[in-house]
């Protein structure tokens, strides 16, 4: 069988990838899922490789997922949590990168509050860079685990109807997903309070903006709820959590508008009772824990394709 190659130095976003790239990562992830079900969950694929998780924003789920993925591939994973930005710390990002480069890592996984920070790092370092979330721009590994989860449950990606509801303006998950959905022929409907909608939604082809969550949910195969960032309350984007929950939250009644076999997704961490009720989050249609499980497999695939293929 011809071995497919991931022909990119870095994974900075869904933008710039081809459908073949997406499929390669998803297919590779499927083959890695099995490892996580073994009693000894480890393969030697990335033995001797050094992976640095450089997190400028607090993150439990994504960081842990990348760390477990690295360890299951036998790489040495080091976590660096820079609670504050490089600027506030007094060291520039460029200097941090120079220091890391001197330690000769193979892969750097970056989470940063600023759009483009992983791109800046990637431009200055020989190591491969994985974007684990840059501001409101991209979160490609989350998108890929979402795609894997959808494909597992629906058996396909093309021609599905997806509803995305929540703070689209500030969501990197939504941006990566809207890019991927457009590439894959997924029909996307979105709904958000107008204050949480970018002014130029036309840049996302094939995305239909709905006035109400009901409209977005109708006939959906997949329902994707976005996290409300509680700190945004101060930005006057919505009057109160209570009102948000009433107008936009996913509850049993609203979910009934979607197809009977619709799945419910959330990138986490959830605000129960705000964007999603516990009943729905824990209900039979929820695949939220599958997303977490697939996160490890997708990240193993990403690390393998970037770091392990040459051998």
């Amino acid at each position: 069988m011809e071995k497919k190659i991931f022909a990119h130095k870095d994974l900075l976003g869904i933008e710039g990838l081809s459908v073949a790239d997406l499929e390669l990562i998803l297919d590779t992830a499927v083959s890695f899922k099995e490892i996580s079900q073994r009693s000894i969950k480890k393969v030697p694929t990335l033995r001797g490789k050094t992976i640095i998780n450089l997190f400028y924003e607090p993150s439990t789920r994504t960081r842990t997922s990348f760390e477990i993925a690295a360890k299951r591939l036998s790489a040495d994973a080091i976590n660096i949590s820079a609670a504050t930005s490089s600027v506030k710390k007094g060291e520039t990002l460029a200097d941090t990168v120079r220091n890391l480069q001197a330690m000769a890592p193979d892969i750097i996984v970056v989470r940063h509050a600023c759009v483009g920070a992983p791109h800046l790092i990637a431009s200055r370092i020989g190591a491969r860079v994985v974007n684990a979330g840059d501001g409101a721009n991209e979160h490609p590994s989350q998108c890929l685990l979402d795609l894997l989860t959808i494909r597992e449950h629906k058996g396909r990606l093309a021609d599905l109807r997806v509803a995305i509801i929540g703070d689209l303006a500030h969501s990197r998950v939504a941006r990566s997903n809207m890019r991927a959905f457009a590439m894959l022929g997924i029909r996307t409907r979105v709904c958000a309070p107008p204050t949480m909608l970018p002014r130029e939604m036309g840049v996302f082809p094939g995305v239909e903006v709905c006035r109400t969550p009901e409209e977005a949910l109708r006939e959906a195969d997949v329902v994707m709820m976005l996290r409300i960032q509680l700190e945004r309350q101060d930005d006057v984007l919505f009057p109160s959590l209570n009102e948000y929950a009433r107008r936009y939250g996913l509850n049993r009644q609203r979910l009934a508008l979607a197809r009977d076999d619709a799945i419910v997704m959330h990138p986490g961490p959830m605000n129960r009772g705000v964007e999603i009720t516990s009943e729905v989050a824990d209900g039979s249609r929820s695949v939220i824990m599958d997303q977490v499980e697939n996160g490890v497999a997708v990240r193993m695939a990403i690390l393998y394709l970037l770091g392990g293929q040459a051998e």
């Binding site: 759009v115 501001g135 721009n137 941006r175 002014r199 130029e200 036309g202």
Partner: peptide, 10 residues
């Protein structure tokens, strides 16, 4: 605030 900001989350 335009297409670039919308596309890249600025």
């Amino acid at each position: 605030e335009g297409e670039i900001a919308a596309a890249f989350g600025f």
